[in-house]
Simulated assay, not measured.
Amino acid sequence: MKITQNVGLVAALGLLLISAVACADTQPESLPLVEKQEFVTTNFETFGGEVIPEVRVGWEAYGELNAAKDNVILITHFFSGNSHAAGKYAETDPMPGYWDAIIGPGKAIDTNRFYVISSDTLVNQEPHNPNVITTGPASINPATGKPYGLDFPVVTMRDFVNVQKRLLESLGIEKLHAVVGPSMGSLQALEWAVAYPDWVERMISVIGMGESDPWTIANLQQWANPILADPNWNQGNYYDSEAPTEGVVQALMSITLQAQHPLIFNQLNAATNARETAPLANIRENFSVINNLRAMATARSTYADANHILYLVRANQLYMAGHGESLQQGLTQVKAATLFLPATNDLLLQPYLAKRAHDILESEGKNSQYAEITGPWGHLDGIVSITTQADRIREFLQ
């Protein structure tokens, strides 16, 4: 893939929507149109011990479930993503799901062989997106008839996994051939292997980690701080007043920036330089790169909710595989074969975070593999450059 060919696409559609570009012309067969479905469960007890009376999440699937119901691969999505991992809802959709390059007939995750299922998480970043179904702070609390706001319980990756488990059980599924996810999805994938080792035969962690260390916790807090500082946030009570739009835009600017590496960011914004005249003439004027970043974040903020972002940040900050006393203790539970695929140039979830989990599993005598995705995109290489690891993924799933 030539980076220069994607500049206009990135500007127009947003960085996290370019996943299908890498190999769009190399895959002759596509998925049939995808249908978004809804799963509802009640009296859901969180890892923290609170009960959510009703949980609703969207889900979609590709391929056919076999009679034995043992050909299932679960895809778990990233922070700003949703269950739309592959295919299109309509022929007129400008782009397919984010991992369409590796999910489909004859692709690395072969829907001729596997039943691939993906669900929206709790507290999804975009509760106002018509293609997302989620339960979180913006949902109506049945006890009050108003949005939960901060009365919604803090949730963890274990809670995301437990909702997915209820969904799978409702379909009569009791075993996963594999669970695969990028970024926040990789946390869910590893949590599956730890929490339900008898369910999971294989686990693939893409651009992920085994636990949030102090650096990562502090780094993620930079996504929350602009929302907390926005006076319209009002301690989460903004659903009947003006929303903290500026805080959300600033948060999404940080997320968009940190997901990239300087290699790609500088190339995409090559027109910006220190000699721009407007910032010299007026302190109120921004460099063009800041205006570009803001425009992209503003577009991405359309369906986002401030409280949902805060809850997602906290779920990632709280992550330790197994949610126990230590990462090593948690990983002792794993029975699955594991494959870790961090991105070499990732500055957000740096490779050492995945390498540590892999090394612990190896030291415990577990079957674990490790390789790095190379590319100029940084964290986004887990989406944009995933086809460079397609053969490895295909082989691992055999």
Results as ranks from 00 to 15, higher is better:
257 L>K: 13
209 M>Q: 14
133 I>Y: 00
243 A>F: 06
82 N>T: 06
65 L>M: 12
194 V>M: 00
146 K>D: 07
27 Q>M: 03
73 I>C: 06
160 F>Q: 06
94 P>E: 07
148 Y>L: 03
15 L>P: 03
169 E>P: 01
81 G>A: 08
395 E>M: 12
139 S>F: 02
237 N>A: 15
72 V>D: 01
137 P>L: 04
80 S>I: 02
249 V>H: 05
240 D>Y: 11
150 L>N: 13
224 A>D: 01
332 T>M: 07
11 A>S: 14
102 I>M: 02
267 Q>F: 06
125 Q>T: 14
299 A>D: 11
100 D>T: 08
205 S>T: 10
273 N>Y: 05
285 E>Y: 09
177 H>L: 07
62 Y>G: 04
138 A>Y: 11
161 V>T: 04
176 L>A: 01
235 Q>H: 15
232 N>P: 03
340 F>A: 09
273 N>D: 14
23 C>W: 06
178 A>E: 02
334 V>G: 01
130 P>N: 07
341 L>K: 02
18 I>R: 10
173 I>L: 00
76 T>L: 06
289 V>P: 05
339 L>E: 01
255 I>L: 13
251 A>D: 04
176 L>H: 07
87 G>K: 03
344 T>Y: 12
188 Q>H: 08
135 T>S: 09
225 N>Y: 13
69 K>G: 13
98 Y>I: 14
351 P>R: 04
71 N>I: 07
324 G>S: 13
25 D>L: 09
99 W>M: 11
27 Q>D: 05
64 E>I: 12
173 I>G: 03
229 A>T: 10
287 F>E: 07
105 P>D: 05
128 H>S: 10
195 A>R: 11
175 K>H: 14
48 G>C: 07
92 T>I: 12
313 V>Q: 11
329 Q>F: 05
166 R>F: 04
189 A>N: 04
237 N>D: 15
129 N>T: 08
267 Q>K: 11
208 G>F: 01
185 G>Y: 03
179 V>C: 03
105 P>Q: 08
217 I>N: 11
177 H>T: 09
136 G>E: 05
170 S>F: 06
232 N>G: 09
268 L>P: 00
47 F>S: 09
195 A>S: 12
222 Q>F: 14
79 F>H: 01
197 P>Y: 10
268 L>Y: 08
190 L>Y: 02
204 I>R: 00
327 L>Q: 00
